[in-house]
Each structure stands twice: as C-alpha cells, then as structure tokens.
C-alpha cells in the first residue's frame, strides 16, 4: 500500500503540525485550568494574531518569526484587557455566561476582520517557506522543524513561569482555591487577566510559526479552535504537558488520516477521538480525576 517511508514522513510532518496545535491548545488549557472557562474566542484571537503577522510582513516587510517578539506583549495586553474589562465583568462569574460572552466576542472579532479584510485568503512567502531539512532519507519541512522546536521551548518557558515565579505561584493558587487565594491577598481578577493574557501570548507565537507555511482569512480560527479543544480534552483540561503531548498526537492522527482517507476526511479522525474521549474519559489522559 504505502511505503513505510511515506508513512513515517507523514507521521513526522504531523508531529510538527501538532506542535503548533499544541501551542494553541497550551493557551486554551492554561485559561481553562485557572479560570475554569472554555474560551470560545480563542480561535478568533488566533486569527487576529495571524493577521497581525501578515500585516507586519505585507506593510512593513518584517519576517514572520521576528514579528513574534513584539506580538507576544501585544497579544498579552489584548488578552489581559479582554478578560479584565469585557469577559470578567460581563459574565458575573457564571460558567454558562462566560461561554456565551466568549462566543459573542469571537463572532465580533471574526466579523470585524471580515469587514476590514474581506473574505480573501492571504498568504505570505519567505525564502524558507519551502526549504527542507534532510534527516537521513527523510525530508522535513524547515518551518515545521522550527515550529516543533519553538513549541517545546515555549511549553518549557510557560512551565518555568508557572513553577518558578511569584506570579506563577499566584496563578496556581487561584487555580486551586480561588477564595483562599483571595483571602491571602491575591488580586484574583488581576491573576485571571494575566492568565488570559498568557494564553493569548501563546497564540502570538503560534501565529508567527504558522504564517510561513499557512494562509489566513477571517474564518480560519474556527478550524483551529476545534482542534485545540480536542487537544485540551485529550490531554486533560488544564494540563500543560497534556496539551503538548495531545497536540503532537493529534497532529500525527490528522496527518495519517489525511494520507489514508484523503484530505476531505482528514479531520474526521480528530473529531471522533474528541467525542470518544469526552464520552469515555472526559478528564482526559493526563487530567486529574474529576
């Protein structure tokens, strides 16, 4: 049927696509782990970041990887502001409301982008978009190798922030016990906003890594957000290592399904896994027991 080399190459490429999924899911799972909310606006925020990368390239001629550096604080600020001034106050602390507010936000963001940029699909090209790295007999796409490396580094950094800094300690405290954290003087709304900001900062990195090989249009976020939900659920809601491993796994599944079933059915494997995990073990493979 297929030679082992093709399957191995597809699996490795999937692994590297999965790294970007992991980055997107990392933000989502962090927000879930601390705020216990499902952020439906995550996909739309990713689209915003991707447009930012595209604009920086098209208007200013900046390299997409370079744009990540200023975009990370920008997206952090955007996320911080959204949580502090929109999502937090509007939802009155009710889970169902948060779901709806973030859904509303995603609709607004997506369609503002649509109004500004129309529904055209945009790409950018760099010298390295189509470069390959030879690994023995296997040819791997250069931007994807970079993506994998950066995703692992960012996961590590995030872990360090959470485990080795005071802010991280505060975040973990709020995640565990909101009321107790408040009692010892932690500013909970601030921590919530910081967490949301960190989640959005992950999107800035993901956007920078995606753009050299991918395209952007105002609706693109939706495709990623469902995949990211799957990753988060699979890895266990709120678990960082779970998000990384889940992302890589999903990338491989998608790539292999695409190879075996054809492009149009490629994503079906993801959703079937998603449903199966939700039905059988909603706490995910790495999640704590509910």
């Amino acid at each position: 049927m297929y030679s082992p080399q093709i399957i191995l190459e597809a699996a490795l490429n999937g692994l590297m696509t999965g790294a970007v999924y992991a980055l997107i899911a990392l933000g989502l799972t962090l927000i879930y782990g601390v705020l216990h909310i499902i952020n439906f606006a995550h996909g739309a925020l990713l689209t915003c970041a991707m447009f930012a990368v595209w604009i920086a390239w098209a208007w200013l001629g900046l390299d997409p990887y370079l744009v990540i550096l200023p975009l990370v604080p920008l997206m952090f600020a955007l996320g911080y502001g959204l949580q502090r001034f929109v999502i937090g106050p509007a939802s009155h602390g009710d889970d169902g409301n948060i779901l709806l507010v973030t859904l509303g936000l995603s609709i607004v963001l997506e369609n503002v982008l649509l109004a500004l940029f129309q529904s055209d699909t945009r790409t950018l090209d760099t010298d390295y978009s189509f470069q390959v790295v030879a690994l023995g007999p296997l040819l791997l796409s250069y931007p994807r190798v970079i993506g994998l490396g950066v995703a692992v580094v960012v996961t590590g950094l995030l872990w360090l922030v959470l485990n080795r800094t005071d802010t991280g300690k505060a975040i973990r405290a709020v995640a565990k016990e909101k009321l107790g954290a408040n009692l010892v003087g932690i500013d909970v709304p601030h921590v919530y906003a910081v967490t949301f900001g960190l989640g959005c900062a992950c999107l800035a990195v993901a956007a920078g890594l995606l753009m050299p090989t991918f395209y952007v249009n105002p609706r693109i976020g939706g495709a990623f957000v469902l995949v990211a939900f799957t990753v988060v659920v699979l890895g266990g809601m709120g678990s960082l290592p779970g998000a990384l491993l889940g992302g890589l796994f999903i990338g491989v599944v998608e790539s292999l399904c695409g190879l075996l079933l054809g492009d149009s059915l490629g994503q079906i494997g993801i959703f079937l896994i998603f449903i199966a995990v939700l039905l059988v073990r909603p706490t995910g493979l790495f999640g704590a027991k509910a």
């Binding site: 409301n97 507010v101 936000l105 609709i107 503002v112 109004a115």
Partner: peptide, 22 residues
C-alpha cells in the same frame, strides 16, 4: 455593503445581553 456587519451586531448584542439583561 460591509460584509459581516449583521454578525458584528449579533455578537455585540449577545455580550450586552449576557452582561446587562440576564
């Protein structure tokens, strides 16, 4: 002829409804 303008309104109304009109 701005595309998506009705949806921008929908989304805004949703957020406002949740915030002020449970």
């Amino acid at each position: 002829r701005i595309p998506g303008i009705d949806l921008i309104v929908f989304g805004t109304v949703l957020v406002l409804a949740v915030a002020f009109a449970r």
